[in-house]
Computed example of a mutant assay.
Amino acid sequence: MSSEKPIRFGVLGCANIARKVSRAIRLAPNAALQAVGSRTREKASAFAAENGFPESAKIYGSYEAVLDDPDVDAVYVPLPTSLHAKWAVLAAQKKKHLLLEKPVALNAAELDTILAACESNGVQYMDATMWMHHPRTALMKQFLSDPHRFGQLKSVHSVFSYCPGEEFLRNDIRVKPDLDALGALGDTGWYCIRAILWANDYELPKTVTALREPEYNEAGVILSCAASLSWADSRIATFYCSFLTNLTMDISCAGAKGNLRVHDFVIPFREKAAKFYGASNSTFSTLALGCEPEPSEHAVETDLPQEALMVAEFARLAGSIERDGSKPEKKWGSISRKTQLVVDAVKASIERGFEPVEVVN
């Protein structure tokens, strides 16, 4: 992989998350930092200096200049969600492969416009949901797919919450209705919904019902909410997402023959090692004084952090298109779209007085 010509990345904007992804681009063996653009050249220059950009990297005082740079193969877009449709479509039209921060759009219609632009211009699309690329995730999926150890999936519960502090709650883009109107639902809720769909092999639920009493800020942006999802065969799922609750990153899956739990699915507690817990064919011990067998701990190590693995996979796909004329991998767009459809359904259920909303693909 490292012998191949690296995919050269441009970064649109200097959001905080862009610091982490810029580091990931540096760590990925098949990627390189080529350019960064901001609304001012001074801000872009400071960002590049603070985040390990090579001296050869281009510094631009606009997003357009990054997209017009012929030496940029791909762009990472961490802009506010309200700006995604404009800049993601323009990036695709400029033939730049697109790594798009989540939530990817304000609604599925916007995302469809983005995906259509990527397809018509032959560029690779991927959303930046990093945990999908950790080797632990693949191992957990093997466990969930084992008919003897786990059996039929019955329920999933996911929680992602954190307390970012008063400064965040006053000024961050994620609490501004004109920048990221989806609030916690689009940020932490995106992860919860993705986890539920992942556990269900990306089969969309039949209905989504938001739970009562979501919390809002004064501008009407969601700070916490929850919802239940149901499938025709009696599978159910629930999630809770929040900016007002202590850091929690859990997935709990219950199957007919086993269960799986992970307590740090979004960002592993340790960068290069991650754990999950599985149990199979559990029963109460004598006099119900315990259970047996006890859940087993599975530790998964990785040389590269999950965000660098994400960049490496994206660069591999983009490189295959650039070098070999391969077709873009469409599964990432499909997964994004299904996640967005459920986000939209939760929002619609809240707006309709917490009525069930049918999810239509």
Rank of each mutant, 00 (worst) to 15 (best):
L247P: 00
L247E: 03
L247I: 01
T248F: 04
T248G: 02
T248A: 04
M249H: 00
M249A: 04
D250F: 02
D250V: 13
I251Q: 02
S252P: 00
S252H: 09
C253I: 00
C253D: 05
A254S: 14
A254D: 14
A256K: 08
A256C: 03
G258E: 02
G258Q: 04
G258L: 06
N259A: 14
N259T: 06
N259D: 07
N259Q: 11
L260Q: 11
L260W: 11
R261C: 04
R261N: 12
R261D: 04
V262S: 08
V262Y: 08
H263D: 12
H263L: 15
H263A: 10
H263V: 09
D264F: 07
F265D: 07
F265H: 13
F265M: 15
V266H: 14
V266R: 15
I267L: 14
I267K: 12
I267E: 10
P268R: 09
F269L: 15
F269E: 15
E271Y: 04
E271A: 08
E271V: 11
K272S: 08
A273R: 11
A273T: 15
A274Q: 03
A274T: 00
A274P: 00
A274R: 09
K275C: 09
F276I: 05
F276Q: 06
Y277W: 10
Y277N: 06
G278A: 08
G278N: 03
G278I: 13
G278H: 10
G278V: 15
A279F: 00
A279P: 01
A279L: 02
A279G: 07
S280T: 15
S280L: 08
S282C: 15
T283R: 15
T283M: 07
T283W: 01
F284G: 01
F284K: 01
F284Y: 11
F284W: 09
S285G: 14
S285C: 07
S285I: 01
T286Q: 11
T286S: 07
T286D: 12
L287P: 00
L287S: 11
A288M: 05
A288H: 04
A288G: 14
L289R: 06
L289N: 03
L289M: 06
L289H: 04
G290Y: 01
G290N: 07
G290P: 05
G290H: 02
C291R: 09
E292G: 02
P293I: 04
P293Y: 03
P293K: 04
E294R: 10
P295G: 04
P295A: 07
P295F: 10
P295D: 05
S296E: 14
S296Y: 04
E297N: 03
H298T: 15
H298W: 12
A299R: 11
A299K: 10
A299C: 10
A299H: 06
V300L: 06
V300I: 15
V300A: 12
V300N: 08
E301T: 14
E301I: 04
E301K: 12
E301H: 13
